[in-house]
Design a protein around this nucleic acid. Sequence first.
DNA 1: GACCTCCTGGAAAACGATTGCCAATCTTGC
DNA 2: GCAAGATTGGCAATCGTTTTCCAGGAGGTC
Lengths: 336, 336
Amino acid sequence: MVTLEDVARHAGVSLATASRVLNGSTRQVGASLRARVEQAAQQLGYRTNVAAQTLARGASNVVGLVVHDLTDPYFAALADGAMRVAEDQGLMVMVATTHRDPEREIAYVATLNAQRVRAVLLAGSRIANPGVTRRLREELDRYRATGGRIACVGQDLLGADTVAPGNAEGAAELARALAGLGHRRFAVLAGPPWLITAQDRVSGFTGALAELGLPAPQLVHGTFDRDGGYGAAAEVTDATCVFAVNDVMAVGALASFRDRGIRVPEDVSVAGFDDIATLRDLVPSLTTVRLPLSDMGARALELALDPSEEAREPRVERVSGEVVLRGSTRGLTPEG
Amino acid sequence: MVTLEDVARHAGVSLATASRVLNGSTRQVGASLRARVEQAAQQLGYRTNVAAQTLARGASNVVGLVVHDLTDPYFAALADGAMRVAEDQGLMVMVATTHRDPEREIAYVATLNAQRVRAVLLAGSRIANPGVTRRLREELDRYRATGGRIACVGQDLLGADTVAPGNAEGAAELARALAGLGHRRFAVLAGPPWLITAQDRVSGFTGALAELGLPAPQLVHGTFDRDGGYGAAAEVTDATCVFAVNDVMAVGALASFRDRGIRVPEDVSVAGFDDIATLRDLVPSLTTVRLPLSDMGARALELALDPSEEAREPRVERVSGEVVLRGSTRGLTPEG
DNA sequence: GACCTCCTGGAAAACGATTGCCAATCTTGC
DNA sequence: GCAAGATTGGCAATCGTTTTCCAGGAGGTC
C-alpha cells in the first residue's frame, strides 16, 4: 500500500509538500517540485487514503441516501437525480434501502452519522407513527448537532429542508379532472393506512370530490406496490373510475381488471400517480399526476448541501404535480 | 463532536476499554465496566467515527457498486440483490453510475480504491474497446494489489470473479423457441455495436438461426434503451418476428409498432431479454429470457467477499436465462 | 543597504480510533 | 497457602492525512 510518505520520499520532498500537490490546498507549490511529486505519485500508483483524509479534514466526501426500495422506479428516479448533483460536486453516494422498515431507517441514519457523511437524504413517505418519528428525529438531531445536513423528499415532518410533492393538491386536481370527464362513482386504492404519502393523496382526492358535491369514494387499503394494487382492485365494487395512489399500484389494478375480463377504460377508468417513466408505454397509457422525480432528488441534495443553511428555518420547497390524462381514463356521457 | 475519549473519561475507564466495549473486539470487558461504558456512550450520544476506525483497522465496511444507469430496472435489480447481502454482512454500499461512459467507470474504480472499499462490483456490459479495457484493468490491478476484491456481473473480461449471464445461450434458446413457433424472417434490434452484452445476444440469436438453416436476420443498431428500441423498430422491414436485445428496447419497439398501427403479435411478434419485473404487466405481455437479476447481484457480492479468493484463478459463475413465451409472440401457420 | 512583505518548503501536532504488550487481579488445583 | 494460568484494564504506538506554525529566500521600496 503506497502512502503519501512514500511519494514524498520518492520525490525528495516533505510530506506537507506532497499533500499540497496531490490533494487540493490553498497553498502554492513551485512548478519543479510539483512536477516531481506528480510524477512520483504516478509512478508509484498512489491513491489517497480517503479515510485518513476524512479524519484529518474532519469532513468526508460522501453523502448518504436512504430510500425505501431501489427497485421501485420512483426511488430509482429520485436517486438518479441526487447522484447527478453528487457527481457534479465530486461527492460519492452511499445508498441504503430500508425495505419500508422504519427501524432500519433510524439505524441507517445512525450508521451514516458514524460515517460522518456530509449530508443525508431521506427519500420516501413518512409513516404515521409518532414513536418512530420521534426516535428518527432524535437520531437526526444528533447528526445535525455535529454539523450534519439533512434533506427529505416527502412530508415536512422532520424539521429539515424538504422537497415536498403536492400530493394532496395533485390528487385533488386529478379528482377534478376525472369528475370533468363525467365520473361520479369512484374507488381509491389507498395503500397502507399509515403511509402519509398515501394518506395525503387519498385525502386530496376525496376532499376534492366532496367539494364537487360528489359521493365519497370507496376506499380499499393494501400494500403500496404492484401486488397491493392488484389485490385492492379486486375489491372494488360499483365504480366507474379507480384511482390508485401510485403508478405501480395502478399497474397492478390494470392487471387485475384484465385478468377478470374487465376492460379499461371501457368498463372502468384507472388513474395513478407519479408518472413513472418506465410505465409510459403501457397500454392503455396511464392517466396520472406527473412528478419531476429526478429533479426532486437533485433539488433535495442541493438543499442539503447549500451552505446558506446555517441556523435558519428549514426550507420547504413544494413541487406540484401535473395531471396527465391518457388512455386509461375515458369520458362518460352524462347518463353513462 | 463526542469522541471515544469523551466516553472513556465520562465512564472513568481507559480509551482501550471503551473501544473494546463499543466496537467489537475479541477481548472481554467486565460486566460493570461494560455497563458504565455503554451508559456513557448512550448518554453522550456517541457515534463511532468510521473514518478513524477504518484508518486504524486498515479495512473499511463499505463496498462499491458501479452501474451504468440506476433508472434502468436491470441495474436497479442487480443493485437490490447486492445490497441485500451487503446488509446481511453489515456493510454499506457506495453506488456510482457511469451513465455508460467507460472513462467514468475507470475514474470511479480509482475513487473507490481511494475509499479503500472492501470490494468493488462492476455491473453491466463491457465494451469492445481494448484501450479502455486495458486502462480499466490497470486500475483494477492497482486496487487488487492492495488487497481489494473485485467481482463483475457481465462478461468475464477483467480477470476477476464474474457472474456471467448466458447471453448467447439464452438468445439462441429464444431463437429456437421462436423458430418453433413458425417464424422464419427475423429482425434483431441489436443495440450499440460496441456493447458486448448486445453483441453476445445478437450472435447467439443469429447463430442459432443459422444452425436451423434459416436466413440471417435483419440487424438494426441503436441505443440500448427504450428510445433505441423505438427508433430501430421503425427500420425493420419484412420480418414476422423482432428480437430486441433487452426488454426496455422491446418496450420501445412495441410503442413504435403501436404508433404506426402495426399490431403485436398479429402483424409482428416481439421478444425481449431480461424479464424486467416492472414490465411483466405489459400488454401484450413480453416474450423474453428471464435472468435472476437480483440473485446475480447478490451472488456477485458474495463472490467478491468470499475470503477463499486468495491467490486463485478468478471464478466464473455462469447463470443461464430461461425462455418465457408470452403474448407478444404468436405461432405462425406454415404458410403464414 | 536596511527593512518589510510575500512566497514557498518543512517539522510536527492534531484527527479518532485499534491493538500489542505489560501489569494487576482473580481462579483454580494441589 | 501457593504457584500457574486465565482474565481484565491501561499505556502508548500506530494508521495516513491535513494544517499550523516557523524559517529562509526573493523581491520591492525608501
